[in-house]
Simulated scan of single mutants.
Amino acid sequence: MMIDGVVPYFAKNHSLTVFSISDPELLDREKVDNVEYIRFPRKNYRLMVAEELKNHHFDIIHVFNRPKNVNLYKMSSPNSKIVLSLHNDMFSEKKISRIDGEEAIEQAAQITAVSDYIKTTVVNRFPLAERKINVLYSGVDLDRFKPVWTEDGERKRRQLRDKYGIQDKKVILFVGRLSKTKGPHILIKAMEEIVGKHNDAVLVIVGGKWFSDNRINGYVNMLYELAQPFKDQIIFTKYIPSSDIPDMFLMADVFICSSQWNEPLARVHYEAMAAGIPVITTDRGGNAEVVIHGFNGLLINNYKNPKHFAQAVDYIFSNQDHAKLMAQTGRKLIELNFCFQHVYERLEKVYDRALNKE
């Protein structure tokens, strides 16, 4: 779930305050579209939020991905109900002690997880969470994601392909951080077999070392070296602002999430489907909860083997009717289940349960 995606819906019927990290380009306090924004420096953020909570009455305090903050905020506002949302495995032994974890679960009125995979990681270690935790899948803004077969989508597709000089190519798209866990090196290695069957194939890698960070580290340098023999058949765009990401999908003939780690459930799956692009992903973590093999995409079990990615890409390129059907199915799945209107409606029910209205 993205906070800014559901805020407009809640602002229509609720008094809403959003606490966030300070930004030099934004005011520390402001009210925009009936939403109050309060921003604190990162260094003392949690303590400053806790202090601020003492000056307000909130029916619900929604804590995102920081179970260690639940007890602190509950002490500051004991009459508020706490809802905790998780989009990572924040209850692992590496992240939280058993005592702190049990206390956070006890103090939270409701807990949501971004996937059944994340829910399971919590319940396996803390069975007492079972009665409070529910899966709350994320979503996208359909106004920002126009499918490739629309007039607007086709126009943007032509513009981007012109920009990158790939007008008549078969375009494979990767979007994500350039890290080993995301697996772009696997895709580069797969290109040798792919171009052997499709010499007009191009791999476009969108992303930097970290969010908004284009610095070169050892892994990124290794990617450039791996890509060197392919010359202009592998393109690195580096970091692309999030506002431009919806359009980037439109240049692709297939999108690949090559995750090597247990993804909580990567947002790029929703985004690619919303754009009407066929999806290939690994069965790591929660990915397979929204991508069903052969129905709205292809799943790869042997995620470390470049050959399996090459075979999946070859299938998409060689079976255009099925690829188009999977893309259309993916878009319909988003329209019916995974836009921000749906997230809002599901979260409203979570709030009602927290307030004992259900």
Rank of each mutant, 00 (worst) to 15 (best):
M2S: 13
V6F: 01
V7Y: 00
A11T: 12
S15D: 13
S22M: 10
R29K: 11
K31V: 11
V35F: 12
R42E: 08
V49R: 06
K54H: 08
H56W: 07
I60N: 00
I60F: 03
I61A: 01
K74D: 11
S76L: 00
K81P: 05
D89W: 10
D89L: 09
D100M: 06
D100F: 11
I105S: 08
I105C: 06
E106L: 03
Q107M: 13
I111M: 14
D116H: 14
I118M: 05
E130Q: 12
V135D: 00
L136I: 11
V140L: 12
V140A: 05
D143G: 14
F145P: 01
K146Q: 09
T150W: 00
E154A: 15
R155V: 13
K156P: 02
R161H: 10
D162M: 09
G165F: 07
D168F: 04
K170E: 11
K180N: 15
K189V: 06
E193C: 10
I205Q: 05
K209R: 04
L223S: 03
Y224N: 09
P229F: 02
I240E: 00
S243P: 15
M248A: 02
D283Q: 14
R284E: 09
G285I: 05
A288R: 10
E289W: 10
I292Y: 01
I292A: 08
G294D: 01
N296Y: 07
N296Q: 03
K304W: 09
H308I: 10
A310I: 08
A312F: 06
V313C: 03
K324P: 00
R331H: 00
E335H: 04
L336K: 13
C339T: 12
R346I: 00
L347C: 10
K357G: 02
